[in-house]
Design a protein around this nucleic acid. Structure first.
Lengths: 119, 119
DNA sequence: TTAACATATGAACAGATGATCATATGTTAA
DNA sequence: TTAACATATGATCATCTGTTCATATGTTAA
């Protein structure tokens, strides 16, 4: 997918020093990949609605489904994605699973994004 | 894609008052859609690298391509996406296009995301 | 036990996405 | 003008993604 710069036979750029400077400052591949995964996770309408709902209140799966208007199954699938990214946490009470936001970072990210969008 | 809650014939949820409360607090569809678009735009490795590079310095297309190691064409395509989302701005100088970050929101978003990832 | 319920999961399919390649546009210097 | 260059764009295609449907898991009450 991402072709390695070193392997290119014919590289042309204008400002060699700028390229070197920024290239050495570049974050580690793994770090920036994790960051991309985080944003990708938040870049879906359903998941973003789930996050917003959980910003208001701890909710169970079927309530979440009712709030955002999709099937329980779809919610469950998407909650798993959010869980994998550690954006939400959950507790079980009987047969009901209650989900809530994992931490304040998510809330901050959401707010920061909203600022950009609402200007 | 997103089925309308109102149209469902059989809705079951446990905490009716919670559902109503959160449902009325829900952001407008358009707003949350824009927000999703924003995060989706930042949820790609190539675009995120472009953003990071531009956080360091104003750069032209072929320098950006050299920094992140993809073709000029791919960079140009992705810069357009970033432009559409108003994440970057540009100026022309002769035949060279210099790109830079559109505003500080982007920088803040990036930093905020990094905090979540690096814990 | 069994039935009913809440949630999770796997397969499958339609739609979205990103890189590539060919080509087009626009700018400068000769 | 023309050639060379920097960038942009459109079409194509392989891959990724999200929903749906069917089914499985796990919990509670009878």
């Amino acid at each position: 997918m991402s072709m390695d710069f070193e392997d290119r036979c014919e590289v042309h750029y204008i400002h060699e020093d700028n390229v070197k400077e920024v290239k050495t400052a570049m974050l580690e591949q793994e770090t920036i990949l994790s960051l991309a995964e985080l944003f990708k996770t938040m870049g879906d309408l359903t998941r973003l609605k789930l996050i917003f709902a959980l910003m208001k209140k701890e909710l169970c799966v079927c309530d979440l489904a009712a709030v955002i208007g999709v099937s329980d199954s779809a919610v469950s699938h998407q909650l798993r994605v959010l869980r994998n990214q550690k954006l939400v946490k959950f507790r079980r009470q009987g047969k009901v699973m209650y989900y809530s936001l994992a931490d304040e970072h998510v809330r901050m990210l959401f707010a920061q994004g909203l600022e950009h969008v609402c200007e």
